[in-house]
């Protein structure tokens, strides 16, 4: 499984791996245009594959008010 840490919501999810970043985002209902996915602090493009057992961080970039 891939561990997905949704930073702003302070929650963790698990999704089956391996999976492309674009698929991870779709799985958690996030948009590519508004979400940064990081692995060990490095930004991943949507076409990158994340291996089973790895952890990624998900960060929403939308600010408002």
């Amino acid at each position: 499984m891939i561990r997905v840490r949704v930073l702003q919501e302070k929650k963790e999810l698990e999704i089956p791996g391996p999976a492309r970043v674009a698929d991870i985002l779709r799985e958690i209902g996030a948009k590519q245009t508004t979400t940064v996915v990081l692995k060990s602090g490095v930004i991943l493009t949507p076409d990158r594959e994340v291996e089973d057992g790895e952890t990624v961080d998900v960060l929403s970039v939308v600010s408002g008010g």
């Binding site: 702003q8 508004t34 940064v36 008010g65």
Partner: peptide
């Protein structure tokens, strides 16, 4: 865009407030 600004902050190591104002 916001995405580009966030990427710039992360790449440059700028430690910013990731949580939104509770009033927003």
């Amino acid at each position: 865009t916001e995405y580009e600004t966030a990427c710039y902050a992360l790449i440059r190591g700028i430690d910013y407030m990731i949580y939104e104002c509770p009033y927003s």
